[in-house]
Design a protein around this nucleic acid. Structure first.
Length: 524
RNA sequence: GGCGGCAUAGCCAAGCGGUCUAAGGCGUCGGUUUGCAAAACCGAUAUUCUCCGGUUCGAAUCCGGAUGCCGCCUCCA
């Protein structure tokens, strides 16, 4: 078995990975806030969790994975005092209900996730909400769990209720606050940006419950029939002073990971921007409530930059998944390849080239070629070309002495690389070297089968290749043209043959001459 | 103001004190193959890791400084 080590962003150290329960991994991944379309940076983070899960499964672990869908509680920057929620804000701006907004962007997220071969979505996205809830829990469906956690924190003296009827976590009561991010209370106080909040004991106390009776997304903390969620652990009595409103953003992750995983989970992932305040607050509220370690291994994905800069809506340097696939016509697998190929603890530069960057800023997307995606596309095509070749091996080839050993060597390199803090770059190097080896050797049917199995193993983690043969629909008229071209070539009428090749290209088909005859395939 | 990260070829990117005269991908140039292509393969493409010092028998890798870039602290993956 492969030695697995991860860099734990809590301890800042590399640690050998072993789950709390042998053979079974419990993992929670911070998912989307459904107030708009997910962008490629969001998916870099989501896909890390997917690669991680797939790798752990390759290593024989049973992985229980949960990704939250945030549909309430995520406050906007421009209205912190009023506590306006992102989803509520989007609803107001578009004249829809927050539930409609959440619904719309949740299904958009699932569509993107499935296209990008996110395994958890492939498995559960198409189920009814009540059935997928344990894998993709929505915050609004777990109000009861959040209230239960809140009451526990109040009971234990870690939180307080304000005169307005809101609840805040008292960070001075939790001595480990700041250990994850380095933002301890003293250091926060040393910073300049301290604004005094009238209701809070400390400006850094974070919201557990916000009062709001102006919007649809609000719950009465005392009327349990309005709560949705799990009733087993609901407190008999909620603090009387709490008033109608909605839960703070951080609360959902603690409540839902305890609900569907356990109080101490093995892995929690998210983007680097979640370190503070989100994850810092999750640790505080979870550990204050349970007296147990919340997360054993924290893993944070560094940002994806577009040509060296953070994506910006204002500058227009911003890509949704939809834009890349639908508008620019890149296969989702190409985008997935690009988004997983760089080590997760390294900021990734999605370099699109200066021409494309200029045009992007003008909002002129049509026909744009993005440098990094072009590179990914070319490399992926080579991988798929090799897979196709392995599926139809040359009949006359001789067996290669010790080919299993060769395949095994690259297989081990691949797994070792992934075990080495999920070094996908290095793992991909092993895949490419194996492909090079395979293309150099002329493999017979048996060796090809071995090689194809190896490719299948690689792709069980990478999920980028066309491993299983897709039935290519070749229309009869295309077949007829290919036939005509073959006749022209046999008659050495190459001008006619080339003309037919152009004609086929116009129809969207590429024809390649191989020793075994013409190979036709649909372009793109 | 507080906290943190990064600087490796034209581009992306691995590298965690010796096996580094530095993986892998893309690009470029030359070749094999092909009617021409495409694909595939072969070869070339950083004696060098932003700069300056230091530690060490030995540094891209550790330490100090300089310069540049980036992130978090407020919404964000």
């Amino acid at each position: 078995m492969t030695r697995i080590e991860f860099t734990n962003s809590y301890t800042k150290e590399r640690e050998v990975f072993t789950p709390a329960e042998p053979g079974r991994v419990r993992m929670y991944n911070c998912g989307p806030t459904v107030y708009g379309y997910a962008h490629i940076g969001n998916f870099r983070s989501f896909l890390l969790s997917d690669v991680l899960r797939r790798f752990l499964e390759l290593e024989g672990f049973e992985v229980r994975q949960v990704m939250n869908i945030t549909d309430v509680g995520h406050l906007t920057e421009d209205d912190i005092e009023a506590g306006e929620d992102k989803v509520i804000k989007a609803a107001r701006e578009r004249g829809l209900t927050p539930f409609e907004i959440a619904e719309e962007y949740e299904s958009a997220f699932f569509k993107d996730a499935k296209q990008l071969r996110f395994k958890l979505a492939l498995e559960h996205a198409d189920k009814p909400e009540t059935e997928r809830r344990e894998f993709f829990p929505r915050a609004t469906k777990h109000i009861a769990e959040q209230l239960a956690l809140l009451q526990t924190l109040l009971d234990r003296g870690y939180a307080y209720v304000t005169d307005k009827g809101e609840a805040y976590f008292d960070i001075s009561s939790f001595t480990r606050y700041g250990r994850l991010s380095g933002n301890t209370l003293e250091k926060l106080n040393a910073g300049e940006r301290v604004e005094i909040h009238p209701d809070k004991k400390s400006p850094f106390d974070f919201a557990l419950w916000k009062v709001d009776d102006a919007h649809l997304m609000q719950w009465d903390p005392h009327a349990r029939e309005t709560w949705e969620g799990w009733y087993k652990k609901v407190p008999v009595h909620m603090d009387d002073r709490l008033r109608r409103g909605f839960p703070g953003w951080h609360l959902e992750c603690s409540a839902m990971s305890m609900r569907y995983l356990t109080e101490t989970i093995d892995i929690h992932t998210g983007g680097e921007d979640n370190v503070f305040p989100h994850h810092e607050c999750e640790i505080a509220q979870s550990e204050a409530a349970t007296d147990r370690q919340f997360v054993r291994y924290w893993m944070h994905v560094r940002h994806l930059l577009v040509s060296g800069k953070k994506m910006s809506k204002r500058d227009g340097t911003f890509f949704t998944i939809k834009q890349i696939t639908d508008e620019l016509g890149y296969r989702p697998e190409v985008l997935r390849y690009e988004l997983i190929r760089v080590h997760y603890r390294q900021p990734q530069n999605f370099n699109i080239g200066s021409d494309a960057l200029a045009r992007l800023k003008e909002g002129n997307l049509a026909g744009l070629h993005l440098e990094n995606l072009e590179a990914a596309k070319t490399n992926l095509a080579r991988l798929n070309e090799t897979v196709a070749k392995l599926r139809a091996p040359a009949p006359e080839a001789e067996p290669v002495f010790g080919f299993e050993k060769i395949a095994q060597k690259y297989g081990n390199e691949f797994r070792d690389a992934l075990g080495d803090d999920l070094n996908v770059s290095e793992a991909l190097a092993a895949v490419n070297m194996f492909v090079n080896e395979v293309n150099r050797l002329k493999l017979n049917a048996d060796d090809s089968a071995v090689a194809l199995d190896q490719m299948r193993i690689f792709d069980s983690v990478l999920a980028i290749m066309d491993i299983e043969e897709k039935a290519q629909e070749i229309p009869p008229e295309v077949h007829a043209l290919v036939q005509k071209r073959a006749e022209a070539r046999a008659a050495k009428d190459f001008a006619a043959a080339d003309a037919i090749r152009d004609e086929l290209a116009n129809l969207g088909f590429e024809v390649k001459d191989t020793p075994k005859g013409a190979d036709i395939r649909r372009l793109n």
